[in-house]
Amino acid sequence: MGLWLGLILGGLLLAAFIAAAVWTSRMRTLSGRVGSFECGCRTSEDPPAGWKAGIGQYGAERLYWWRSWSLALRPSRYWSRTALVIVSREPMEEPGRVLVTCRAGDELFELTMSREAYAGLTSWIEAAPAAVGRVI
């Protein structure tokens, strides 16, 4: 009985160690990518205190967002660059951070980020190539 208990506990400890190593590797990889930044996210479906910590990254055509506390290899959310509109921006209590309300199509969501990341976001949106067939 003691041997089985030891094997089970050892297996659980090994699984926890492997999960922690994979999570650490994932976060280092995401944080080290060009165009990545710390970014909290809350959608209109989330409760008022439903902020989720994550990493945002500017792609060629989309803004990608990965949850911090996940082992997923794919982004949790992404929004098309051409559909993304900044509705409002306001400073947060935490110095150097801003709350950004965005819309992508019918979806309304909020992001928290540093002022520098916000400057990057606005530049990234403004630098989007004009869509074919779009009348200005």
Rank of each mutant, 00 (worst) to 15 (best):
P48F: 11
P48R: 14
A49D: 14
A49Y: 15
G50Y: 09
G50Q: 13
G50A: 14
W51F: 07
W51A: 06
W51I: 12
W51T: 04
K52C: 04
A53M: 05
G54V: 03
G54T: 11
I55C: 05
I55L: 02
I55R: 14
G56A: 14
Q57P: 00
Y58V: 00
Y58E: 08
Y58H: 14
G59Q: 11
A60G: 05
A60Q: 13
A60E: 13
R62K: 15
L63D: 02
L63S: 01
L63R: 01
Y64W: 10
Y64M: 15
W66R: 08
R67H: 08
S68H: 11
S68M: 07
S68C: 11
W69C: 09
S70K: 08
S70C: 15
S70L: 09
S70A: 05
S70Q: 05
L71M: 15
L71T: 12
L73A: 06
L73D: 09
L73T: 11
R74V: 07
R74P: 07
R74D: 06
P75N: 08
P75C: 11
P75D: 06
P75W: 06
S76H: 07
R77N: 14
R77P: 04
Y78E: 08
Y78V: 01
W79V: 02
W79R: 03
W79D: 02
S80K: 15
S80F: 12
S80G: 12
R81A: 11
R81H: 10
T82K: 15
T82V: 10
A83S: 12
L84Y: 03
L84H: 05
L84W: 01
V85A: 14
V85R: 12
I86Y: 00
V87N: 15
V87I: 11
V87D: 09
S88V: 10
R89T: 13
P91A: 12
P91I: 14
P91R: 08
P91M: 13
M92A: 13
M92T: 10
E93Q: 09
E93R: 06
E93P: 05
E93H: 04
E93I: 12
E93L: 14
G96A: 04
G96E: 03
R97H: 08
R97I: 00
R97W: 01
R97D: 03
L99I: 04
L99H: 08
V100Y: 06
V100P: 11
T101N: 01
T101S: 01
C102P: 13
R103V: 06
A104K: 03
A104Q: 05
G105T: 09
G105A: 10
D106A: 15
E107G: 10
E107F: 05
E107K: 15
L108K: 13
L108I: 11
F109W: 05
E110N: 08
E110I: 01
L111C: 04
L111W: 04
L111Y: 01
T112Y: 00
T112K: 00
T112P: 04
M113D: 00
M113I: 01
R115V: 00
R115S: 08
E116F: 01
E116R: 03
E116N: 05
A117F: 02
